[in-house]
Design a protein around this nucleic acid. Structure first.
Lengths: 247, 247
DNA sequence: CGGGAAGAATTGGTCTTACCATAATGAAGT
DNA sequence: ACTTCATTATGGTAAGACCAATTCTTCCCG
């Protein structure tokens, strides 16, 4: 007898698999992350809130979060919440950190790559930015100004400024990538226990650069945005070179 | 009062590692599976039985099973139970690949990023390439031509061509980065079991593009190299868009 | 006025219980 | 002997409660 009859034609009719609620929840969460609604480092809503807003039970949400954590997309900490991880980290950062350790040449190379990537970002941001994104960029600029009056612009604010511009490109992959490059450089700076731009003069220059970039993005002038960011980062790269030689 | 007396002395001397119960359960299950207690195709005890025998709640067992399922070790079917799968087949996918796998939009985003990065690379290569690097690029171009006569340019050759140009930038970090991006995209193509550029006409167009890029790099004409690579990758991105819509 | 410390609110981790949906099992009827 | 259908076992989901760790707020002290 044909014993594998029930096997041979089974794949013709039943390729379907009932999708669990937790998988649907995981799918929705993946979508909003890939759409850039939640970016690297963002905390997504609490389990209870997600459960309520999606109309499912908390265990289902928990299982979904667990799936995403197992895929390396999230990290959840007890009492803290669930944080979106950098999707390119495993791909780029971990293999790179080995080389980066204390090689200023490598830091310079990363900075060079960052430079032209952010130039592209500024151009794209000028083309695609929304009013909401513009407001966030402006808010960071104002915070930067307050920092400047106190004497020193915090690196986190500078980082957020560039990160916000990256977000305005509406290319989620790029956002994760640029975040990774930022982290690589900042990590290196910490290792060397150095700060590059300490002079008051440098601080003011950097602020002026940022202001120029912001205005261009505000006016949707992509060429000017590209030029402004290009000038800014050429300055940064030059300072970096001087710093690398000085040590 | 010592409210947690009945619990505290049971694990007083164990290391205070914030490992979740579900992870401990998952670890035990992985052990008995790897020890051969349960072999491929075997059905594990029911969730309720596991919970009782391990002295934990059923949700904890469920989360553990879910973790193992996400790692490809188990497969659980509703009403059926949890079955041990073949351990040798599992492959680790990076978080980015998880996204790329089921989202053509993401593939497009990566391709967009690749596009402007390679444009920069062509420009830099025209400025900094050595004679040796030029020879290697030329050799790949000739191999590509032989492929074209046979009907189809191999993806590996195309990949090597771009990779060699990246190397000519003399930015080691950039080489690694662009290599990763290539791998991400090629993986996604495999997943979708599609090939984008199959038409003879496309093949010839691509070859002409590459030839133009090569000549510009050979002549150390950075502006032309940038323009040529830009035109090429705009073409690729457009084809990708069409492909993404068609599926 | 600033800064640290204590307390309150938030949030993830676990347990318990209950009910539903589906697959596996077996008994009854033809 | 085969089919049919009820029973049972098992996974899937929901709800509520409590604990533990974190984060935020507030208040008090210097």
């Amino acid at each position: 007898m044909s014993q594998k009859n029930h096997e041979s034609h089974s794949h013709l009719f039943l390729p379907i698999r009932p999708e669990r609620v937790s998988e649907k929840v995981a799918g929705q969460l993946k979508k909003v992350i890939s759409d850039g609604v939640f970016r690297v480092g963002d905390r997504l809503p609490s389990e209870r809130e997600l459960a309520e807003r999606m109309g499912v039970s908390r265990p289902s949400v928990r299982e979904a979060l667990q799936q995403l954590e197992m895929q390396g997309i999230l990290e959840t900490v007890r009492g803290g919440g669930s944080i979106v991880k950098n999707l390119t980290e495993q791909q780029i950062r971990s293999p790179m950190e080995v080389f980066l350790g204390d090689d200023p040449q490598m830091v310079l190379e990363v900075t060079e790559v960052r430079a032209f990537m952010e130039t592209w970002a500024a151009k794209q941001a000028a083309l695609h930015r929304t009013e909401d994104e513009l407001k966030r960029i402006q808010a960071l600029l104002e915070e930067m100004e307050r920092d400047l009056e106190k004497g020193r612009i915090r690196y986190e604010i500078d980082f957020k400024f560039h990160s916000e511009i990256a977000a305005a490109t509406h290319n989620t992959f790029f956002v994760h990538l640029i975040d990774n490059l930022h982290q690589l450089v900042s990590y290196s700076i910490k290792v060397h226990r150095e700060q590059v731009f300490t002079a008051r003069q440098d601080q003011e220059t950097i602020f002026r650069h940022h202001l120029r970039v912001f205005k261009a993005i505000k006016d949707r002038n992509s060429a000017e945005a590209e030029a402004a960011m290009g000038d800014h980062l050429r300055f940064v790269v030059e300072e970096f070179k001087r710093w690398a030689q000085a040590r």
